[in-house]
Design a protein around this nucleic acid. Structure first.
Lengths: 225, 225
DNA sequence: GGGTCCGATCAAGATTCGATGAAGACCCAG
DNA sequence: CTGGGTCTTCATCGAATCTTGATCGGACCC
C-alpha cells in the first residue's frame, strides 16, 4: 500500500520517504521536515492519531489520514487530531493525489491560526530560488532584492511551480493548483500567464532562468541561470 | 469531554492545560495564569461555582462555564458567579470555539472595572508600524504622536492587520478576526471600513502607506511609505 | 526537406475587482 | 424618546486583470 502511494507521489515529482511504523514515521518526519505526510491509521507501534499529535508538536506540515471507515472520520475530527484531510480506504490513487494537490493550495495552519490577541509567529519561511525570493504569506516576490509586482494569478502560478522546484508540472496540474479542480477551458491559458511571469522576471523564451519549458509536458522551476 | 475541547483549542493555537477536579483546576490556574478558563460544572471536589469564585480572587481571566441545563444559567447569573459566558451541554465544539474567540474580543473585566485608580500592568506592548502606534490594550492609535480617532470596528480591522504585519489577510480572515466566525453577509463590508481607516490615517487608494490592497486576495499591513 | 505539432507572443474583448458615495438601520447616551 | 454617531447595505464607476483567439516561428518526426 505504502509503495503504491509512494509510486504515485514520485511520479508527480515528490520526494518520498517511507516509514512502516509510528515511531519511525515520527522520527523520519522530524528529520526530513516534509511538506506532506500521508498517514495510514492502524500502524503498529503507535496509532495514527498519536503519530499525528506528536508530529504536530514540531511541524505544521499537511497531514492526510487514510482511514478504513467513513464514520471513523467524524471520530477523528472530534478528537481534533489535526489532520488536514481524510481519505477512506479503498481509495483511487488519483483521488488521493488530487486531494494532496488541492490541500497545498490551502493556507498552512500556522498562517491561519489567528488566535485573538496573540501575534502568531510567521513560521512559513519564504521560498528561495536562486536570486528569487517568494513569500507565500505576504504574497511578495523579490528578484535580487527588488520587489516584483505580480498579479494574483501570476503569483499563484509561480508559487505552484516554486513549491515543487524539481518537478515538472503539467498544464493541468498548474490549472488545478491555481484555479481549482472544476475547470473547463483552454489549457493554453497557462501559457499566457507563464509568459507574463517570465516577462516580469526578465526571462525570455530563450533564456529561461526561472520558469523552464519542458516541451510536450509542461513547466518546471529553474534554479536561476 | 475535556480532551475534546482541548483538542479544538489546540487546533486553534491555544496552549491547553487540563485539570480533572476543582482544587487541581484552581491550583493550575494560579500557576499558569491562563487567558481563558473553560469550566465544566459538576466537577468532583469543588463545584464549578466555587472554583470560579476562587479563581476570581487572584485572576481576571475569561471564564466560560459549561452547564447541563439552560435554566441553570439564570441561577448562575443570579449567583453572580462572575463567568464571562455560559454554554449549555450538549454543545457543538465549533460554537464553543466561536464564543471563546468572541469573548476575547470584549474588553477584559480588569480593563472595564477601572474602579479606584489601580492601573493594571501593561504587559502587552503596543504595535509599532512605522509612524503608527497601535495600543491594543487601550485601543488607541497614534500617528506621528497625534491620536487618531478610530471607531470600534475601524480599530479592530486595523488591529487585525497589524497583528500580522507581513501577511496578506483575505476579507474572510478579516471578518473572522473582527466579527467572528458565523458571518453571513457581504464581504465588501470590509472595504468600507478599510476606506474609513485609510481616510483617518491619511491614506488614499493611490498612496497606500499603511493598509495596502492586494488585488484579488485581500489587504496587508504596509510599513509606512 | 517537408509537414506537423507545440509553444511564444500579441492584441482585444470580457470580466472581475476595489474604491467610493450615499442612504437606511442600528445602537447608545442623554 | 430623541439625536448623534456608527455600522451595514447598495449601486456605480473606472481600472486592473483575465481569457480567448489568431498568428508566428521553431522543434521534432518522417
Amino acid at each position: 500500500m505504502a509503495e503504491l502511494v509512494a509510486g504515485y507521489l514520485r511520479r508527480d515529482g515528490y520526494e518520498v520517504h517511507l516509514a512502516f511504523d509510528g515511531p519511525t514515521g515520527v522520527a523520519s518526519a522530524r528529520e526530513v521536515d516534509p511538506d506532506v505526510i500521508v498517514l495510514d491509521l492502524g500502524l503498529p507501534g503507535l496509532d495514527g492519531v498519536e503519530v499525528c499529535r506528536r508530529v504536530r508538536t514540531f511541524s505544521d506540515c499537511y497531514v492526510v489520514m487514510l482511514t478504513a471507515r467513513t464514520d471513523e472520520i467524524d471520530t477523528l475530527i472530534g478528537l481534533s487530531v489535526g489532520a488536514d484531510d481524510y481519505v477512506t480506504k479503498p481509495f483511487r490513487p488519483r483521488e488521493l493525489m488530487a486531494r494532496i494537490t488541492a490541500m497545498q493550495r490551502r493556507p498552512r495552519r500556522a498562517a491561519t491560526a489567528t488566535v485573538a490577541g496573540s501575534v502568531a509567529d510567521e513560521t512559513v519561511p519564504p521560498i528561495l530560488v536562486g536570486p528569487l525570493r517568494i513569500d507565500l504569506v505576504g504574497r511578495e516576490v523579490e528578484l535580487d532584492g527588488d520587489p516584483v509586482g505580480l498579479t494574483r494569478t501570476e503569483f499563484d502560478v509561480l508559487a505552484a511551480l516554486a513549491r515543487r522546484p524539481l518537478a515538472v508540472l503539467t498544464r493541468r496540474q498548474l490549472i488545478e493548483a491555481v484555479w481549482g479542480e472544476r475547470w473547463v477551458g483552454d489549457e493554453h491559458l497557462v501559457d499566457v500567464h507563464v509568459l507574463h511571469v517570465r516577462q516580469k522576471l526578465g526571462d525570455t523564451a530563450d533564456a529561461q532562468r526561472f520558469v523552464r519549458t519542458v516541451r510536450g509536458v509542461g513547466y518546471r522551476m529553474g534554479t536561476g541561470e
